[in-house]
Design a protein around this nucleic acid. Structure first.
Length: 502
RNA sequence: GGGCGCGUAGCUCAGUCGGUAGAGCAGCUGGCUUUUAACCAGCUGGUCGUAGGUUCGAGUCCUACCGCGCUCACCA
């Protein structure tokens, strides 16, 4: 047992067992969701029971208020919160067992729905069943869990102890199912592709490495599912999407987590313009479904996700902010010097640094920034009427990148050339070898295809008004506590815990 | 990795100039049949993140380390 278990609570469980009552019974009750019960109860009412309306609820008992012969306490389940009223006169046989209850216990309650003298809707209990004893006390009731580290490390407490947290994750689930509904309605097929990749690609990022014992080789955790999904377009599936967990071995910030969820979709016969339509229609639909309005508030500013979104061309924005063309190397280098940027050793990286320093803050949006320079788009098709730019866009909101899309490069020789350039760069974030199998897939012929990637976590941030990615991740990445600090990991604790179970 | 800040009871936090470790909540005992963070009386609860150092004396000052947050860098 950890040091969170309170001895008096453990002692109560022992007393229950001695009295023949199981503090951890195997069976629960058949409860009605609290929100449902509240919706059916009406508002104003006479004090006293609503005759004939007997309900059963189950949930966590919080902050009991004991008046000696009467106890009030809230019960919370996943849908809401309701007060229960325990009266000695209606629970004569059970009454001594109230001493076994603590805040935090899992409780099943049956009783008549009614109101109190103050008009509070209340389940007047006729039957109470302890469903699981809580050994660890809940957080302080005024402030809840205020320490953010504890909130993330003990999300199983945060979810019910901190106002609004459960709602964010319920919305997250609705957003993900809304995405599925939206795409399936358009004939998309949801697929699953490998997470273990022999060659990492589809994005620029440092990967995690792992090892397969039986095959005797290393694998990378995927940084993007892109190249596998496009293989499926070659395979004839025509419209596919995947909600993929990606892994990038890079810094953690309010917008970055080492593992994050990405929606990627690919559609044969589509191009990046069609991808813009899908993106704006999907976001508008999701905002309406989740919030009932296309207006969202993010980091203190309001945005409207009503389609169509604004469009701005990368070359135009670059020229407007820097007074030169993006491929005017001497002028751009001069500009970089003025901005105090350090040369990353590659002109196109430097140019993009200039863009990010001067233009990205203007992309409050929602806005599609389109037509990126070809050298920074190794997987996108070149604009047929402009060899300097690729048919690519990024979607921004509040200066944050939400999505990335292009008309996919499907010329195998050109793709091979661009892969070779990446490998030759010897960049830490570039793959060590050309993905020959992918080039080979293209050699079989991939139809004209549009592809779109959207960061699910960031989208959830925007739609739920959370400023940091950790608040939309149930278990954000944290440094593990050392064995001596984590009581559940201590060697001495294990045998005792084992005895407690089976 | 750099800068700034934080770490004191199960939880939320005080702790002055370096001089006996504090409060509220939770818990325990008693009282109370209409509370909404109930209330009243009493009690319990501490390796002050860890390890060193300075000092007659360290929660407080110094050093290192650990953890977390913010921020910068990184992250197309």
């Amino acid at each position: 047992m950890t040091d969170l278990a309170q001895s008096d609570r453990v002692a109560k469980a022992a007393a229950m067992r001695a009295a023949g009552v199981d503090p951890f019974p195997a069976r629960g009750v058949v409860p009605q969701p609290i929100s449902e019960l509240l919706a059916g109860a009406g508002t104003a009412a006479e004090p006293g029971p609503l005759v004939g309306k007997t309900v059963t609820i189950a949930g966590r008992l919080l902050a009991p208020r004991d008046f000696g012969k009467l106890i009030f306490a809230p019960i919370v389940d996943r849908t809401g919160r309701v007060q229960i009223g325990l009266r000695r006169d209606s629970l004569t046989e059970w009454w001594p067992q109230r001493k076994w209850l603590d805040a935090g216990d899992q409780l099943g309650v049956t009783g008549e729905l009614g109101f109190t003298q103050k008009g509070e809707i209340t389940v007047w209990a006729s039957e109470v069943k302890l469903l699981a004893k809580s050994y660890a006390p809940p957080p302080e009731k005024w402030h809840g869990l205020a320490d953010v580290e504890q909130r993330y490390r003990r999300r199983y407490v945060d979810l019910w102890a901190t106002e609004g947290v459960m709602d964010v994750f319920i919305k997250r689930s609705k957003i993900v199912s809304g995405i599925r509904r939206f795409l399936e309605a358009q004939g998309y097929l949801e697929v699953e592709t490998p997470t273990l990749h022999p060659i990492f690609g589809g994005a620029t990022a440092r990967p995690f490495v792992t090892h397969h014992n039986a095959l005797g080789c290393d694998f990378y955790l995927r940084i993007a599912p892109e190249l596998y999904l496009k293989r499926l377009i070659v395979g004839g599936l025509e419209r596919v999407f995947e909600i993929a967990r990606n892994f990038r071995n890079e810094g953690i910030s309010t917008r970055h987590n080492p593992e994050f969820s990405m929606l990627e979709l690919y559609e044969a016969q589509a191009d990046y313009r069609r991808m813009m339509e899908i993106a704006e229609q999907m976001l508008e639909r999701l905002a309406l479904d989740i919030n009932g309005t296309t207006k969202v508030t993010f980091r203190g500013a309001e945005y409207d996700l009503k389609a169509p979104f604004q469009r701005v061309r990368y070359p135009d924005l670059f020229r407007q902010q820097n007074g030169c063309e993006f491929d005017d190397e001497p002028a751009v280098r001069q500009r970089a010097k003025e901005l105090g940027l350090t040369d990353p050793g590659n002109y196109w990286k430097l140019m993009n640094d200039v863009f990010e320093a001067t233009c990205e803050k203007l992309l409050t949006g929602p806005v599609f920034c389109t037509d990126y320079p070809v050298p920074i788009c190794p997987l996108a098709k070149t604009n047929p009427h402009d060899p300097k730019t690729a048919e690519r866009f990024e979607l921004f909101l509040g200066g944050m990148e939400l999505g990335n899309a292009f008309t996919e490069l499907n010329d195998p020789a050109e793709q091979e050339r661009r892969f070779e350039e990446q490998v030759a760069s010897k960049d830490e974030e570039a793959p060590g070898e050309v993905d020959v199998d992918y080039v080979q897939a293209l050699e079989y012929g991939m139809p004209p295809t549009g592809g779109l990637g959207i960061g699910i976590d960031r989208l959830v941030m925007v739609l739920t008004g959370q400023d940091t990615i950790r608040d939309v991740l149930l278990f954000p990445a944290m440094r593990p506590l050392s064995a001596t600090q984590a009581p559940e990991a201590s060697a001495e604790g294990a045998p005792a815990a084992a005895k407690e179970t089976h």
